[in-house]
C-alpha cells in the first residue's frame, strides 16, 4: 500500500491519499492542473515535500534509487539512451523471458526489440517503454498517458496488462485523457481541479485522508 501525506509540489495544494494493493487510482484534471507533476513527485523525480510510505516505510528511509525500483514512473514521452530497445533492458535470463511475455501481451513482435529506436512507431515505442517499466515488477506503477499514442486495439492490450498488474496486487496510479479507459480501470479518482482532494468512487477501499 502506498500512502501519501501532505504532498506538496510548488504551488499545488497539498495532497493526502492512499492506494491499496491491487487498487487503481485515476489522477484527473484539466491540462496544467498538475497530473504529471504529481506522478513525478511520487517517484521523487522533482523536488517536493511531504511524506510517502510504501508498506509503512517512509521514502527518505531508503535511497532514492531503491524507492524508484518499487515506485515506477512511466512517462508519457518514453526516453531511450541506446540504439535499440533491448539495449535499455536488463540483460538477465529472467528479464529475457519476461520481456518476451510482456511484449507479446502488448501485441508487439519480439523482433522490434532489436530494431533501431528511430524506426519504431510512436505507439510501438510507448508500449515497449511500458514493458520496460513493469519488467522488474515494481510495487507501484505511475502511468502518465499510457495509451496516448495507441489505437483501440493496442489500448485494449495495454488495459489487459494493467489489469494483470492489479490482479498481481500491484498499485496503479494513472493519468489519462481516455475517460472510457479510466471508467473501466479506476477504483478511486483524485480530482485535481478546482480543489485537489481524493473522492472515493465505485468499489473504493480507501477514502481520502485529511489533508
Amino acid at each position: 500500500m502506498l500512502r501519501v501525506e501532505k504532498l506538496r509540489i510548488g504551488s499545488l495544494p497539498s495532497l493526502s491519499f492512499a492506494v491499496a494493493d491491487g487498487e487503481c487510482l485515476a489522477v484527473e484534471g484539466p491540462s496544467g492542473s498538475g497530473k504529471t507533476r504529481i506522478l513525478r513527485a511520487i517517484a521523487d523525480l522533482d523536488p517536493n515535500e511531504g511524506q510517502l510510505f510504501l508498506d509503512g516505510i517512509e521514502r527518505q528511509e531508503m535511497p532514492a534509487t531503491d524507492w524508484r525500483k518499487h515506485v515506477r514512473y512511466a512517462a508519457a514521452e518514453p526516453g531511450w539512451w541506446a540504439d535499440t530497445p533491448r539495449q535499455t533492458l536488463p540483460a538477465t535470463e529472467f528479464a529475457d523471458a519476461r520481456t518476451l511475455r510482456l511484449v507479446t501481451a502488448l501485441g508487439l513482435d519480439e523482433a522490434l526489440l532489436d530494431r533501431p529506436i528511430n524506426r519504431l512507431s510512436t505507439g510501438e515505442r510507448q508500449r515497449l517503454a511500458l514493458a520496460r517499466a513493469i519488467l522488474d515488477e515494481p510495487r507501484v506503477l505511475l502511468l502518465d498517458e499510457p495509451t496516448a499514442a495507441l489505437d483501440a486495439g493496442a489500448t485494449e492490450m495495454v488495459e489487459e496488462v494493467i489489469r494483470y498488474q492489479l490482479q498481481a496486487r500491484r498499485s496503479v496510479l494513472i493519468a489519462s485523457h481516455d475517460t472510457e479507459l479510466i471508467d473501466r480501470l479506476a477504483h478511486v479518482r483524485l480530482q485535481l481541479a478546482p480543489t485537489a482532494r481524493a473522492h472515493p468512487a465505485g468499489t473504493a477501499s480507501q477514502g481520502p485522508l485529511p489533508a
Binding site: T65, E77, G79, W81, D136
Partner: peptide, 10 residues
C-alpha cells in the same frame, strides 16, 4: 527525457 527515463528505472 532519456536521462530521466533511466532515473525513473532506478
Amino acid at each position: 527525457v532519456a536521462i530521466e527515463a533511466r532515473i525513473a528505472l532506478g
